[in-house]
Structures are given as structure tokens and as C-alpha cells.
Design a protein around this nucleic acid. Structure first.
Lengths: 156, 156
DNA sequence: CTTTTGCGTTGGCCACGCCAACGATTCATA
DNA sequence: TATGAATCGTTGGCGTGGCCAACGCAAAAG
């Protein structure tokens, strides 16, 4: 075999949805590999960072912010609670809810994850210059924002 | 609840890997919904389009072109063969291989899928103008190309 | 001729994004 | 105030996607 017949057909190479998907595959691999060294996964970072940025909140709100399903949030919250990275206690003012709070340990852990993630971004976007990275994220932000707008019950 | 607390924290909203992933989620949904109306999935389009563009080839080569695992190619090829969209016969010159060929029916089917996909791209990239779409795909092409270069055994 | 490499196939794995259902609670409306 | 609707957390499950392992076979390399 020619050993270099691995160039995708133009029908894929120029198809935005395919490119986005391939990029996502690589992104996932890079991110997960690094997060795994700290025993974390992507969902863990999502909820920790949301808590750090917005403060304590219910699991449902957490899911809305991070675009996660309630059931998945429940799982992640359980895991993080087990490691004392967050606290979960029933809301006295609405006993349906759990109020989730990030602990000091959680904050430190989050900082660690942040560094790992920064490395992953760098490796992922290696071929792009600073300005191009900005362009890419700006474009993606608009795409994601629009989709969220279309099929979410809101979006800022 | 405020009913609009669904804006992601900046730590996610400005994280390229997260944006790429969200975009991929939406892209998948849009693409799959449409392909499903023709009874197809993404992999089916990939191998059909590769065959249409490069002509007959082995399953292994197919996998290399489309970035698919050999085992997944085997499955897709089996499905497509069952619908007479492709032909699969042993290579007389190397009896380890199967030579896969797209049939006329397959070509027509492919054209159908192409239209469905075009619609999906349009919906996905709705908020972007023509030039911005070009920018986005160009940037992604470089990212994907670089990753493939780094961890494939080749890339054109 | 033996070892290495490549091929196709089967079977399995795990993460991810979902959905369905349930009991419990709160809210809205009558 | 009573009653239906909506929200919350939890459990359990599902399908896909990307991948790996192993096997038997065939070809290439040594």
C-alpha cells in the first residue's frame, strides 16, 4: 500500500460539519488525556468552573449553565462530592433542590485542571497564530450561540 | 428559577476545545437528523463519497481516507453492500483485501445525501456569512490537518 | 523458511449526550 | 384551601461514536 493514501476526499475535507467533528475528536483526545492525569474528565471541569464563576447553585442550574443533562450532573456531583471538591446540601428554602458549593480544595483542583487545559488548547491550536485563534473561537462562539438560541429556552 | 441562567461560564464559553465540542454536538444532531430521513448515518456518507471521489479501493484504504477504524469500516461496508449501494469482492491480486466499488445506485444515493448535508451545513452555519464560513472551514482545515500530521503515518 | 506486516472480521469497551420514570416538593390556579 | 402543573434530584437505560484486542489468513521482508 502507498502508505500515504490517508488524505480525506474533498467531500469530507471541505464539509464544515465533518471538519468540526474531526476537530472535536482531536480536542477530546488531547483534553481527556491531560485531565486523566489528574483523575478528572471534561464534565468535572465544567461544573467546577461554573461553580467558581457563578458561586453556589442548584444541580439543575448547573446543568443549564454547562449544557449538561440533569442526570449527568447528578453523577458528576456525586463523584466530586466524594473527593471533597464540592459540597452538596439540601436547600432550606426549597427542599427540592441541592445547593452545590465549591470547596477550597475544589478551587485548587480547578486551578490545576485549568493549567492542563491550557496545554491542551495550545497543542490543539498549534498551527494557528494568536489572532487566528481568536478568529476561530469568535466564529465558533457565534455558531454555538445561535444553535443554543434556536433550541434552548433562552441564551444571553 | 430565573429561566435564563443558561449562559455558560466564561471558562467554558471561551475555551476552544469546549466550543469545538459544542459545535460538534449541534453539527451531529443536524446532520444525523437529515441523514436519518434517507436511512443513512455519517459513516455511510464518508465511505460513499470516498469511493465516488477516488474510485474502488480496499476497506483498509477506505478507513485511512475517512479516518475510520477498520472494524467500523467493515460494518458500514456490510450495511451498504446489503443495500446494493456498493460492491465488495476479494482482490485477486492480494487475497487479503476486499475491493470495494460504488454502484450506480450508490452514486444516486450519494447525491441524495449530499443535498441533505448541504441543508445541514446551512442550518449549522446560519449566523455566518459566506466569507466567514470560508474562514471557519479554512481554520478548521489547518487544525485538523495538523493533528492528522502529528499522529497519522502521513498526510498530504 | 521464518518473521513481520498488513488485511478483514468479531466482539467488546467507555464516554457522551439523551430520554423516561419516579417520588418529593413547590407553585399556580381555581 | 384544595388540586393540577411544574420543578428538582435520582436511577436506569439507550444508541452512537471512536477505539482496542484478538483471531485467521495472506503477503512481504529478512
Amino acid at each position: 500500500m502507498d502508505s500515504t493514501d490517508d488524505t480525506p476526499p474533498a467531500s469530507l475535507r471541505r464539509l464544515p460539519s465533518w471538519l468540526i467533528n474531526q476537530a472535536a475528536v482531536h480536542a477530546q483526545r488531547l483534553v481527556n488525556d491531560r485531565l486523566a492525569t489528574a483523575g478528572a474528565r471534561r464534565y468535572h471541569y465544567s461544573v467546577l468552573s461554573a461553580l467558581a464563576e457563578y458561586g453556589a447553585m442548584s444541580q439543575a442550574a448547573l446543568g443549564r449553565h454547562c449544557h449538561l443533562d440533569r442526570s449527568d450532573v447528578a453523577g458528576v456531583v456525586a463523584e466530586l462530592t466524594g473527593q471533597d471538591l464540592i459540597d452538596r446540601e439540601p436547600d432550606p428554602e426549597d427542599r427540592r433542590r441541592n445547593i452545590v458549593t465549591i470547596t477550597p480544595v475544589g478551587e485548587r483542583f480547578l486551578a490545576e485542571l485549568r493549567e492542563l487545559l491550557a496545554g491542551a488548547q495550545d497543542e490543539l491550536l498549534a498551527p494557528l497564530g494568536g489572532e487566528e485563534r481568536e478568529q476561530l473561537t469568535a466564529l465558533l462562539e457565534r455558531v454555538v450561540g445561535h444553535q443554543a438560541e434556536v433550541r434552548g429556552s433562552g441564551w444571553s
